[in-house]
Each structure stands twice: as C-alpha cells, then as structure tokens.
Nucleic acid binder design. Sequence first.
DNA 1: CGGGTTTGACCAGCGC
DNA 2: GCGCTGGTCAAACCCG
Length: 323
Amino acid sequence: MEYTSVIDTSLDLNIRPLRLLDDGLKQEVQSNLLECGTKLPVKEEAAGDLVEELNRVSAENKKLTEMVTVLCENYNALKNHLMDYMTKNPGPIDNTNNTGSRKRKAESTTTNNNNVDATNYGPSESSSSDEDSCKKLPREEEHIKAKISRVYVRTEASDSSLIVKDGYQWRKYGQKVTRDNPSPRAYFKCSFAPSCPVKKKVQRSVEDQSILVATYEGEHNHPHPSKMETPSSNSSKCVTLGTVPCSTSLSSSGPTITLDLTKPKKSHEEVRNSSTHKIDSPEFQQFFIEQMASSLTKDPSFKAALAAAISGKLLQHNQTEKW
DNA sequence: CGGGTTTGACCAGCGC
DNA sequence: GCGCTGGTCAAACCCG
C-alpha cells in the first residue's frame, strides 16, 4: 500500500474561525472589538496605550503562532510515523507461525495488545529500537506479559539525565547505546515494591533531544507512591487532552504539549483498520482539527490570548487602513 | 555502611 | 553457524 500522498496538515484555522470558538470566546472577541472601536477615536494619551496594547497582542499573537506551529509539527511527525508504520505492516496480522516464546516477540506482542507504536511522538522514534516492535508482527501469548505504555516528556535539552519523574521509585539496572539512537537508553526497574514487575526504558528522541521517551512495561502491583505520600510536585504530568492522551511539560519557552497516542482505547487491529482507511479522509482531518480546537478552547488562557490576538489583528488592520 | 549508579560482560533473539 | 543487537547481570564505584 502506498502512503506517499501528503495530507494537508495545515490546520486552516482561518476557515470559519468563529465556528470553532465557543460562545464565551466569541463574546470575548466581540467585546474586545467593541473596546477597540471605542478606543479608536481617542487622542494622543490613548495612542501610547494603544501602541503598548498592540505590542502586547502582537507578542501574544506570535506566541500563539508558535504554538500552532508546534502543534502542526507534532501532527506531521505523528502522521509520518503512522504512515511509516502502516507501510511496514501492510498486510493482515499473521499469527500462524508465532509459536516462539522469545522475549522480544513477547514484547512486540504486548505492544500490539496495548499500544500502537506507530502513533508515538515523531519520526525520531521510527529509527529507534522501538521500531523493532513495529517490524515484528504481533504474536499470541502476549497477554501474558504486561501492557506497554509510552510517555513523552519534554526536558531541557541541556539536561543529560535520563530521569522521568512519574512519582514511582525506579532503580537503574542498565544502560545501553542502541544502534539507531546515539543517545543511551537507560533501563529501570520499579523499586518501590520488591515484587513489582514494572520496567521502564528511557531514551531521548533522535530528532528532538529535549524529549525523553519513557517506555513502561507491565503494571504496578502497588499503589502510586504519590498517593500514599504527597502528590508529586514535579513539572511533568500527564493529562488527557480531549480524547487524546498526552503528556505535558513546562519548558523555558512555555508549556508544551506532547501527544501520546500510545494508549489507544481501540485494539491494535481496530486502530490499524480504522487508521488505514480513514487517515487520509477529510473526516479524520476534520476530527483531528476539531479535537485540537476543542481542547484549546477549553483553556481559558488560550481563549483570552486568542481573543486578544484576533482583536489586535483587526485593530492593526483598522489602523493601517486609517493611516 | 547501605543503597543507588555505572559499565563491561554475558545471554538470547534474530537475520543472513 | 555466525555476527549483530537489545536486554540483563553483577562487580566496582559513588554518595549521603
């Protein structure tokens, strides 16, 4: 199957922009516009304020543009990786000759059962060892092994530590440099409970060294330590962005959102089928865009910034017309 | 001194 | 069978 067709990844946010805004945001935009209208006739003392306001909203607009750019990049990376994955696994899953009990097969199968590697953060992952689990077709017996999940955490690029704070206690038992990724991969075992089978692998993304990819294998057989003690105060947290699981983190450039589609609610087979047939469809793109829009418009600060940016743009337009 | 980290060695899966 | 690679082990080391 050929997936070379390029999806139009532009969010096209200019199309019916207000349609994506909820009523609150619309009102905010309108009130800002009214404000602008009333301010226009004012004299010099207000001009300074207007210029200041203009600078402010321009800066916000720039920030918003950057955010949208990041979202687009994430989407493109995600899409490319999904295409890559589906290209490598074009046919139906064949379990007929998978009676082997090799560990790596087991891992790849659990991946199939609980995860979709193709949907991880970006193209960088396609070249890491995790790619192996993509290449290996799903096997049976896999349910035996615990589930695999993946979390992406943005850190300072200068931070060379492979530490993903998730509230659990981990003991590092190995580190390895893998073939496809110059960054070392660290191996951790959960040390909070002696019998806890959970393992964690942490490696930096090839493409974006500021992103740590933590792969969890298994399920904790003990409560989350942070629930027993004080809640984790670290900056890395997982939230659900609409229906899309993701991890967020704070960086020097502001909050970032890293999509984490590695915990699909559908089975691997379902995802394969649906994504194969719908990834290129307008419905899928529409759904994706609306998901992002819906998530973003739920953020009050985003709404305020967007309203200010829009009104600022219109104000700028009005002023240039007058001058 | 105990617990965690580092790191080279070893083992096993897999492709040729 | 052999070599490559990822995963694990365990001794040495570090640190509080």
